[in-house]
Design a protein around this nucleic acid. Structure first.
Length: 560
RNA sequence: GCUCUCGUAGUUCAAUGGACAGAACAAGGCUCUUCUAAGGCUUUAAUGUAGGUUCGAUUCCUACCGAGAGCACCA
């Protein structure tokens, strides 16, 4: 459609004496449906060059397209019913009913409605969530998970083959701190997260403890001490099992798990094999990022242990060995942006073929109004406590709902509410965590979308019971809802290209809002001869919401 | 000090360089004998400052102000 319009416009401009390549013509969706479905500002852009007013040029272009400026008849472009000139000289195109038919039918019949082939055949690995065993799974991990999962689904909807990866820090100082606290019975009955906080505090305030923790850190890598090994093995398994439960609730299934205990060794080998890239400095091995405009970072400590940077090199190699991807995306919070750049610069020198395929997608921080949350001090909200509290809020309503499984519904709503809040805005923005707001399920929210979907389901099911088949009627008045549904595939494409799930979120709110307004004033199953048409639109809304929610990683309950 | 991200109604977020800057929450009023009121209708309210590029700037560029993050042995 867009391509046809561009071609026709290029031809029309040619007649007006302006030569422009079709690709350079900008056709956009209108911000407001009352300005048509597509619009172009070419008359404004080229008026000066043409030496006449933008309005005059617009009229000339429209005439060249083969109809009068207010003509209602079909012309050079199939699927357009009306062209008009508005405002300072915009040319607005209105879709014809027959152009909407295919969209509504596709929405109703095609399970992959909204998908595209822009990444057909591409292999992409997406790494996200990345919690650390021996530490809490906090709401920052929830943020990474929601964004990473949604990006994965967007890429799949664009035809890519996606493998989900999770990289977990099962070795390093944080582990040693936790083990130290457990070994010295500092936290009887406490959680692994509590032990970490105690260990961290001791490390900072107690010289003796610091020394012991450093020793334990080395022992974790060497596995030379059976007492340390016992605590380590138990803690690691308990943490991972616990995380697995959370992934299930969130709806993420990882294809690959990578651990720092694996990447550390590989990374060490890489760093040591490239003395021309990594140099010694104060007993440590560092990469001088200044030569590429960055800063210096330590790769191997003066104690001979690998840092996160070295492990990241090992991880890249391990990933490449695991699967021959075309692209590997790592999703993390923005605080790791600078660090990642240095690692990429170093990687570019030692394994350029892999470095070329690695992308870092950063998102904002989940923080409190008062400042950053830190698991070092215990100033965190854990993922499960938030999910739990929100499930409690949803449970009351869920019990009165028509859902078969009230507990499942309460959980779906809780997870939907959290994910919506994370995915409603651009990913680069920080999210200020406000408990009261997070627990609200009113207005623009996950439950709002889920509720609209459940309503469409009820109508569609009732229609099926009455043997009313959906049938889009081209003679019926064109509705804004149908015109909005037509845009879904383009919204998905844009979100996928930009890796910005919030475009989908915003769009789904618009669809739900328009549907709810319609639903409030219109009896859909009214026994009239237009009901099959109305069922078709309802059914299309239903599938659009379902697929859209799927992209966001939010479940679409059939009854609420 | 240097680098990165972000500044839009009282609050939380939208707006591929375009039309009157959209929603939601909060506050007030109205709305269920009709397919689900977790809904719908309605009133009030915003682009940090100063320049620049452009027919046109919330969007791009520069400076400043403000918030957050990072900057050598944490991850």
């Amino acid at each position: 459609m867009r391509e046809q319009l561009k071609k026709a416009l290029a031809g029309a401009l040619q007649k007006a004496g302006i030569s422009v390549a079709g690709e350079q013509i900008i056709i956009e969706h209108t911000n407001d449906l009352k300005n048509g479905d597509y619009a172009t500002g070419v008359a404004l852009a080229y008026a000066k060059q043409a030496g006449r007013s933008s309005r005059a040029l617009a009229e000339e272009v429209v005439a060249a397209l083969g109809r009068s400026p207010t003509g209602e008849t079909l012309g050079a472009v199939d699927g357009i019913s009306k062209i008009e000139i508005a405002g300072p000289g915009f040319i607005n195109f209105y879709l014809a009913s027959n152009a909407l038919t295919s969209s509504i039918n596709a929405a109703t019949e095609d399970e992959k409605w909204g998908s595209n082939k822009s990444l057909d055949g591409k292999k992409i690995m997406v790494e996200y969530t990345d919690p650390n065993p021996f530490k809490e799974f906090h709401i920052g991990h929830l943020m990474s998970n929601a964004i990473g999962e949604s990006i994965s689904r967007l890429l799949q909807f664009s035809g890519a083959e996606v493998k989900r990866a999770n990289y977990q820090g099962d070795v390093g100082p944080h582990v040693a701190k936790t083990i130290w606290a457990v070994k010295n019975s500092k936290v009887p009955g406490g959680s692994w997260g509590d032990a970490y906080i105690v260990g961290n505090k001791a490390y900072e305030t107690d010289e003796m403890a610091k020394k012991e923790i450093d020793e334990i850190n080395a022992l974790v890598y060497s596995r030379a001490d059976s007492a340390v090994n016992a605590i380590y093995d138990e803690g690691r398994e308990a943490s991972l099992k616990h995380f697995e439960k959370i992934y299930e609730i969130l709806g993420t299934k990882f294809d690959h798990y990578f651990f720092e205990s694996e990447t550390a060794r590989k990374g060490m080998a890489i760093v040591k094999a490239h003395p021309e890239v990594f140099e010694s400095s104060d007993g440590a091995v560092v990469y001088k990022g200044e030569k590429v405009g960055l800063h210096t970072r330590v790769f191997i400590t003066s104690k001979g242990l690998p840092t996160y940077e070295t492990k990241e090199l090992g991880l890249a190699e391990l990933k490449a060995k695991t699967w021959s991807f075309d692209e590997s995306i790592t999703v993390t919070a923005h605080e790791q942006a600078d660090y990642f750049q240095v690692v990429l610069a170093a990687m570019n020198e030692v394994m350029p073929d892999i470095a070329r395929k690695i992308r870092h997608v950063t998102h904002g921080m989940m923080r409190f109004a008062e400042g950053k949350m830190s698991s070092r001090t215990g100033n965190v909200v854990t993922g499960e406590s938030l999910i739990g509290d929100l499930t409690d809020v949803a449970r009351g309503r869920a019990k009165e709902s028509r859902a078969a499984d009230h507990e499942k519904l309460a959980q779906d709503i809780a997870v939907g509410a959290i994910k919506f809040q994370i995915l409603k805005g651009g990913t680069s923005k920080d999210i200020i965590f406000d408990r009261e707001r997070a627990l609200s399920v009113e207005g623009d929210s996950g439950p709002y979308l889920q509720y609209a979907h459940a309503r469409t389901r009820a109508v569609v099911e009732k229609a099926a019971e009455q043997n009313i088949a959906p049938r889009f009627d081209e003679r019926a008045e064109i509705s804004d809802l149908a015109r909005l549904l037509h845009r879904f595939p383009e919204v998905v494409l844009r979100a996928s290209l930009e890796r910005e799930p919030h475009h989908v979120t915003t769009y789904l709110v618009e669809v739900s809002s328009l549907f709810n307004r319609w639903y409030a004033t219109e009896q859909i199953l009214d026994g009239s001869n237009t009901q099959a048409h109305k069922v078709a639109i309802t059914s299309a809304v239903c599938c659009t919401l379902k697929n859209g929610l799927h992209i966001l990683g939010i479940s679409a309950p059939e009854r609420m």
